[in-house]
Computed example of a mutant assay.
Amino acid sequence: MNLHNPVDPELEKLEISLLLEGIFRQYGYDFRNYAYTSVKRRVTHRLQLEGFDTATRLLDGVLHDPEMFHRLLGDLVIPVTEMFRDPETFQAFRDGIVPELRKLPYARIWHAGCSTGEEPYSMAILLEEEGLLDKTRIYGTDISEGALEQAKDGVMPLERMQLYTQNYQASGGKRAFSEYYVSDHGLVLMKPFLRKNIVFARHNLVTDRSFNEFQVIFCRNVMIYFDTVLREHVHRLFYESLAVGGFLVLGNKESISFTPMAERYEVFDDANRIYRKVV
């Protein structure tokens, strides 16, 4: 980080630890148990942009300048999302989970770490095509207020629609994808009927508790940034939030294996990282 002198790795780690502690105490965002290498890379990026040579100077800046903090926050919660991302997972949902949801009078689906809302809107489209949208409430939560505001508006860039259309078709989509949005001045607005059963709200997986009982929880490629202690904490949160017989859908690099909750699930679809709570 210091461009002029050799960096002491232990001192650097201490400074970043103090930075994360300061962020937590001042702003309530807890990154203290995020994977160190990922945090270090993002902090280094912010140091370069702000013209600082140490995390200690960055800490001083973010404590006294909320705008600087929000710039750093944008680095720490980089969203990686797209509609119908990993189409095979949505196809597996249609084939395997939808028949189970049909048996229920009502269902709640939680998309944890939903970023700007692409995944919840994808789910709304899928449920509409399967005749289940009216009896399902979709919850999209994220740590970032800015991402959630964008999600609530349902606005997306027009240039991404070609990719999203390909994903939709590969996921088993049954209509023309263009039926679900209107385009205007280089932007796309998702149609209002898709938004009516989606609730977007801020929720911090690190510090907040369960807020409802769910039949399905999606949390894909979020916990790869967490250390072991934090991953186990979040798995306990999800277990407490799932109804018996409910489904947990993880990212393709994640697994329930080797967590304290592993024996309380059965593997429903190993290829797509779908697990079912059995006890």
Rank of each mutant, 00 (worst) to 15 (best):
E130F: 13
E130T: 11
G131S: 06
L132V: 10
L132D: 13
L133R: 04
L133D: 06
L133Q: 05
D134G: 12
D134V: 13
D134T: 12
K135H: 08
T136S: 07
T136M: 06
R137G: 06
Y139S: 12
Y139Q: 12
T141D: 09
T141S: 14
D142N: 10
D142A: 09
I143P: 12
I143D: 06
S144H: 10
S144Q: 07
S144M: 03
S144G: 12
S144T: 09
E145F: 13
E145H: 14
E145V: 11
G146N: 05
G146E: 05
G146F: 01
A147R: 04
L148H: 09
L148F: 08
L148E: 09
L148I: 07
L148T: 11
E149T: 13
E149R: 14
Q150R: 15
Q150Y: 14
Q150H: 14
A151T: 05
A151K: 13
A151R: 14
A151V: 10
K152Y: 09
K152E: 03
G154C: 06
G154V: 02
V155T: 14
V155W: 11
M156A: 10
P157M: 08
P157F: 08
E159W: 14
R160E: 09
R160L: 11
R160V: 07
R160H: 13
M161F: 04
M161C: 02
M161R: 01
M161W: 05
M161L: 05
Q162I: 12
Q162S: 11
L163K: 10
L163C: 08
Y164D: 04
Y164T: 01
Y164A: 03
Y164E: 09
Y164S: 05
T165H: 07
T165M: 02
T165R: 01
T165I: 01
Q166C: 10
Q166F: 13
N167K: 02
N167Y: 03
N167V: 00
N167H: 03
Y168D: 00
Q169M: 10
Q169Y: 11
S171W: 02
S171P: 01
S171H: 00
G173Q: 00
K174W: 03
K174A: 09
K174G: 08
K174D: 05
K174H: 06
A176C: 09
A176I: 11
E179T: 14
E179I: 10
E179Q: 12
Y180D: 01
Y180V: 00
V182Q: 15
S183Y: 06
S183M: 07
S183A: 02
S183L: 02
D184S: 10
D184P: 02
H185T: 15
H185K: 15
H185I: 13
G186K: 08
G186W: 08
G186V: 04
L187F: 11
V188T: 04
V188S: 05
V188M: 07
L189P: 04
L189I: 07
L189W: 14
L189F: 14
M190W: 04
K191V: 07
P192V: 02
P192F: 02
P192M: 11
F193M: 08
F193G: 04
F193H: 12
L194G: 04
L194N: 07
R195C: 08
K196P: 01
K196W: 04
N197P: 03
N197S: 10
N197M: 09
N197E: 12
N197V: 05
I198K: 00
I198H: 00
I198L: 01
V199H: 07
F200S: 03
R202Q: 00
R202I: 00
H203I: 01
N204K: 01
N204E: 00
L205E: 00
V206K: 11
V206H: 12
V206W: 04
